[in-house]
């Protein structure tokens, strides 16, 4: 379980997170939504200790990650897989080596075992034959899928997705959404999805938290979200429906 307790964060005097609290249960898919610049990605970086809160605390399995040393923090981070917004694939390595990287670094598997494991991960993200290609030879959707394969290579307990469908066409976005849902079900992973794409939220999330003006404005299940009459939340959802077209959100 991940607990975010009264987190405050500001950069150069500009408040990005103000008294944000949230509890993410094991096995569920939690979406964190909000407008661009509302602090969603900053909150995600707090979950793995890439950023430290000015006040408040983050607990991962009851461990306050602000109170542990760097070596303990690294142990906590190894329970996470992270899909960054642009994929963050290492340019100097092929797609295969990107996925193999965590296996080579953190496991004692032989080269043959690593090859099998990488192939399994690439199969899971439906990219079986692109292993030798470099990241710059891949499309945006393929890069995100390779990054996802890398994120699940060590079978993490939690996966964090930062804007998994941003910059992708609707068809590829749907494929990524299905992939996220499929992985959560098949690998029993707790997922945290940072997004402003309501179509994505409705397809994959169990719970939704809405950040508005740096504060946790609304928090509840997807059913509650659809029934909510909160004006600001409705306005955010409506804007999204308008952008993606009413038919695709229904």
């Amino acid at each position: 379980m991940i607990q975010i307790e009264h987190v405050y964060k500001s950069f150069s005097g500009r408040t990005v997170l103000h008294d944000v609290s949230l509890e993410i249960s094991e096995g569920c898919t939690q979406a964190i939504i909000g407008q661009s610049g509302s602090g969603k990605s900053v909150l995600m970086k707090h979950l793995i200790g890439l950023l430290r809160p000015d006040r408040g605390r983050i607990l991962v399995n009851q461990v306050d990650i602000g109170q542990i040393n760097y070596s303990e923090l690294r142990e906590v981070r190894q329970q996470f897989g992270v899909l960054f917004q642009g994929g963050a694939l290492f340019d100097s390595m092929s797609a295969f080596d990107n996925v193999a990287f965590p296996l080579r670094t953190f496991t004692r598997k032989t080269d043959q075992e690593i090859q099998l494991e990488v192939q399994k991960c690439l199969d899971l993200v439906q990219l079986s034959n692109i292993g030798l290609k470099n990241p710059d030879e891949l499309s945006g959707g393929m890069r995100k899928r390779v990054a996802l394969a890398r994120a699940i290579a060590l079978r993490p307990r939690y996966i964090l997705y930062d804007e998994p469908t941003s910059g992708l066409d609707p068809e590829t976005s749907n494929a990524i959404n299905q992939l996220i849902k499929g992985l959560a079900d098949r690998l029993d992973i707790t997922s945290v999805v940072i997004t402003h794409d309501m179509h994505s939220v409705l397809s994959i999330a169990d719970h939704v938290a809405f950040i508005h003006n740096s504060r946790m404005h609304w928090n509840g299940s997807v059913d509650e979200l659809q029934d909510s009459d909160d004006e600001i939340l409705r306005s955010f959802i409506t804007a999204n429906e308008y952008r993606i077209g009413p038919s695709s959100s229904s």
Binding site: R77, F80, V82, F84, F90
Partner: peptide, 18 residues
């Protein structure tokens, strides 16, 4: 610099590497 702005350094840290 490219690794920093494309979040590759964050990815390394997120994996638990220094």
């Amino acid at each position: 610099g490219t690794m920093r702005v494309s979040e590759q350094i964050d990815a390394i840290e997120a994996m638990g590497l220094n």
